[in-house]
Lab assay of single mutants.
Amino acid sequence: NQASVVANQLIPINTALALVMMRSEVVTPVGIPAEDIPRLVSMQVNRAVPLGTTLMPDMVKGYA
């Protein structure tokens, strides 16, 4: 199964993503693939992302 990017902490709106904020986990539904974690670093989220939430492409500015 494909691992997705999951929030490792609460990520406030407009926060630039850092490695420590993300982990990979096999979840349903599938979100952003875990292999894209390096690409996500320094991109901003466009909403608050609670701990344990799967990151979806529409949550990250400039990802989709």
Rank of each mutant, 00 (worst) to 15 (best):
P33N: 11
A3H: 10
P29Q: 05
P29R: 04
R23V: 07
A64P: 14
P50V: 07
M22Q: 00
Q44D: 04
V27N: 03
V5F: 02
Q2R: 12
N14I: 03
N14K: 07
R39K: 14
D36Y: 13
I32H: 02
R23T: 08
A34G: 12
I37E: 01
T28I: 11
T15Q: 11
S4M: 02
E25Q: 13
I11E: 00
I11R: 00
Y63W: 13
V60Q: 00
A3T: 11
I37P: 01
P29D: 04
A16P: 10
A3F: 11
S4P: 01
V20T: 15
P29A: 04
V45F: 00
M22S: 01
A34S: 13
Q9K: 12
V45E: 02
T53Q: 15
S42A: 07
S24C: 05
P33S: 09
M21I: 02
V6M: 04
V41F: 04
Y63L: 06
A64E: 13
A16T: 14
N46V: 11
V20G: 14
M56T: 13
K61E: 13
P12F: 05
L40W: 02
D36P: 00
G62Q: 09
V49P: 03
M22P: 00
P57G: 06
P50L: 12
V49T: 04
V30P: 14
P50N: 07
P57T: 06
P29T: 04
T15I: 07
N46D: 10
S42G: 14
M22N: 01
S42K: 13
A3L: 14
G31V: 01
Q44H: 14
V27M: 06
R23Q: 05
L51I: 15
I32S: 01
S42R: 08
G52V: 02
M22R: 00
P57R: 08
T15K: 05
Y63V: 04
I32D: 00
I37S: 04
T54W: 02
A34P: 06
E35M: 14
A16I: 15
N46L: 12
V27D: 03
V27L: 05
P50W: 06
V27K: 09
I37L: 11
P33I: 06
V30E: 12
N1E: 11
M21L: 05
S42C: 05
S4K: 00
P57D: 05
A64G: 13
L19F: 12
V27R: 13
R47K: 10
N1Q: 15
Q2T: 12
L55Y: 00
D58T: 09
V45Y: 00
P38H: 11
I32M: 03
I32E: 00
M59N: 05
M43S: 06
A18I: 11
N1Y: 13
P12E: 10
L51N: 11
V20W: 15
L19A: 14
M22C: 03
P38Q: 15
V5M: 01
L10I: 10
V26D: 09
A16N: 12
L10Q: 11
V45M: 05
P29C: 04
I37T: 06
R23F: 05
S4A: 02
Q44K: 11
Y63P: 03
T28L: 15
D58Y: 10
D36F: 10
N14G: 12
V5E: 00
A16K: 14
E25P: 02
R23M: 06
M56P: 01
T53H: 12
M59H: 07
M56V: 07
P12K: 08
T53R: 14
V60M: 04
L40I: 10
M59A: 07
G31K: 02
T28P: 00
D36Q: 14
Q9P: 01
N1W: 11
P12H: 08
V5S: 03
A64D: 15
A48L: 15
A3K: 12
Q9G: 05
R23P: 02
M43K: 09
T53N: 10
M21E: 02
V20F: 14
E35I: 12
M22K: 00
A64V: 13
T15H: 07
I13R: 13
V30L: 14
V20E: 15
I37H: 02
L17P: 01
V41M: 06
D36R: 07
V49R: 03
D58E: 13
G52Q: 03
V49N: 01
V30S: 15
P38R: 10
S24N: 06
V26K: 14
V26S: 10
A7Y: 03
P12Y: 05
M56C: 05
G62L: 09
S42H: 14
G31Y: 01
G62M: 09
P50D: 09
R23D: 06
P57A: 15
A7F: 02
L10C: 06
E35V: 13
S24Y: 07
M43Q: 08
S42E: 08
S24A: 13
M43F: 09
L17C: 03
L19H: 09
A7D: 01
T53P: 00
N8I: 07
Q2W: 15
M56Q: 13
I13L: 10
V60S: 00
K61C: 05
V60R: 00
Y63C: 04
A48T: 12
D58N: 08
D58R: 07
V6F: 01
V30N: 13
A34M: 07
G52W: 04
R47Q: 11
P50Q: 13
R23G: 07
S4Y: 03
A34V: 08
M56A: 05
A64S: 14
K61F: 10
M21D: 07
S24L: 08
L55H: 01
M22F: 06
E35A: 15
N1A: 14
P50R: 08
M56S: 07
G31R: 02
Q9A: 09
L51A: 14
A3P: 12
N8F: 04
M21G: 03
I32A: 01
L17Y: 00
S24W: 10
A7E: 02
K61I: 14
A16R: 11
T28V: 10
A3R: 15
G52N: 10
T28W: 12
R39I: 10
A48N: 14
N14H: 08
N14V: 03
L17D: 02
V60N: 00
A34C: 05
K61R: 14
Q44W: 09
V60D: 00
A7N: 01
S24Q: 14
M21K: 02
R23A: 07
A3M: 14
T54N: 03
R47M: 15
Q2V: 15
V41L: 12
V20Y: 14
G31P: 00
R23C: 06
V20K: 12
D58C: 05
A18D: 11
L19W: 09
P12A: 10
D58L: 08
P12Q: 09
Y63R: 03
L55V: 10
Q44E: 12
V41T: 06
N14R: 06
A16Y: 13
A7S: 11
V30A: 15
L55S: 01
L10M: 11
V30T: 11
